[in-house]
Amino acid sequence: MSVMTHLSAYSSLSKLNLDYNCFSEIGGLLHCASLTHLSLAHNKISCISGLDKLPIKDLCLRGNQIEKIENVETLRTLQVLDLSLNRITSLSGLQNLHLLGSINLESNLISEIKEATHIHDLCLLRELNLQRNPVQEQLDYRLAVIFLLQHLTGLDQEKVTVEEKA
């Protein structure tokens, strides 16, 4: 499928998996007032849009062509976000998603440790995955990220130790 059909007739829909299609944009979800889990992995999406004020808790946009985290500030219930295998260079856009507990940004283009400051105030954030990003090549990368994000319990799919936080 390459075009998302209008799903307003499915207002009770809570989970939707549209992985491995050819969607280039997100649409037709406006009236899905019960949608809590959405997966659009491995499509051709380049821009996050069409999700305004949906009650999504778990959003997977893995393996798309997204370069910028945008238009997610109205997803106030978002807890799990998977943006791995995209082309993202900045964590800007996540700063107001205060219920986020897990962010997967594996295999993106994040190159600066200072990008972690965008998510510094997300107190419920416990898991962050930045594996296979250029930022990992920086000196003391792991300790610097843990210092900036003291509440993390897992970084790059490894537990954060008490010693690392000290």
Rank of each mutant, 00 (worst) to 15 (best):
S2G: 13
V3N: 05
M4R: 03
M4N: 02
T5S: 14
S8H: 13
A9Y: 02
S12A: 02
S12E: 03
S14Q: 08
L16Y: 03
N17P: 00
L18W: 04
D19P: 00
D19N: 15
Y20L: 10
Y20N: 15
Y20V: 09
C22A: 13
S24N: 14
E25G: 01
L29K: 08
H31T: 04
H31W: 01
C32W: 04
L35V: 03
L40Q: 07
L40D: 10
A41N: 13
K44V: 01
I45C: 08
C47S: 03
S49L: 05
L51C: 11
C60N: 15
R62Y: 12
R62T: 11
G63T: 10
G63D: 10
G63N: 08
Q65G: 01
K68M: 08
K68T: 13
E70Y: 01
V72Y: 02
D82H: 14
L83I: 11
L85V: 07
N86Y: 10
R87A: 10
I88M: 05
I88N: 04
S92I: 02
G93I: 06
G93H: 08
Q95H: 12
Q95G: 07
L100Q: 09
L100M: 05
G101C: 10
L105V: 13
N108A: 07
K114H: 07
A116W: 01
T117K: 11
C123Y: 09
L124I: 02
R126F: 05
R126T: 13
L128A: 06
L128S: 04
L128C: 07
Q131E: 15
R132C: 08
R132V: 05
V135T: 11
E137R: 14
Y141V: 06
I146E: 03
Q150S: 15
H151M: 14
Q157Y: 08
Q157S: 12
Q157H: 08
K159S: 12
V162K: 14
E163L: 13
K165A: 09
